[in-house]
Amino acid sequence: MVYSQGEMNTYPTITIDLTLDRHTIKDVLRAILDAILFHRLFGLVKPKTREVLGVTMPGVSDLDMEQLVEEKVDLFWKEIEGGMSKRGQIIVTFSEKRPKKSWFQVYVGEEDVPWEQWVINAEMRQPRDLDRPQFDTALSNTLTKAIHTMLTYTSSDRGRTAVPLMTNATGISPFPIKIAVKVGGVEFG
Score class of each variant (00 low, 15 high):
K72P: 00
V73P: 11
D74C: 08
D74T: 14
L75R: 14
F76I: 09
K78E: 11
K78D: 02
K78R: 14
E79T: 08
E79Y: 12
I80L: 10
E81T: 15
G82C: 07
G82D: 11
G83S: 03
S85C: 00
S85V: 08
R87V: 08
G88C: 06
G88A: 12
Q89P: 00
I90S: 14
I91R: 04
T93C: 07
T93H: 06
T93K: 06
F94N: 15
S95W: 13
E96H: 10
E96G: 04
E96I: 03
R98A: 05
R98H: 06
P99V: 14
K100T: 08
K101H: 06
S102Y: 15
W103S: 08
F104S: 00
F104H: 11
Q105V: 04
V106M: 14
Y107C: 00
V108G: 09
V108L: 12
E111S: 10
E111N: 11
V113T: 05
Q117W: 02
Q117G: 08
V119P: 03
N121C: 01
A122Q: 06
M124C: 07
R125Y: 11
Q126W: 12
P127N: 06
R128S: 09
D129K: 14
D131R: 15
D131Q: 14
D131K: 15
R132W: 13
R132Q: 15
Q134V: 14
T137Y: 01
T137R: 12
L143E: 07
L143V: 07
T144L: 09
K145C: 06
K145W: 02
A146R: 09
A146S: 05
I147S: 01
I147M: 08
T149H: 05
M150V: 05
M150A: 07
L151P: 00
T152E: 02
T152W: 00
Y153C: 04
S156C: 04
S156G: 03
S156E: 02
G159A: 05
G159P: 03
G159F: 09
R160P: 01
R160A: 09
R160C: 04
A162M: 07
A162Q: 07
A162R: 13
V163M: 07
L165G: 03
L165Y: 09
M166T: 11
M166E: 11
N168D: 03
N168C: 00
G171S: 02
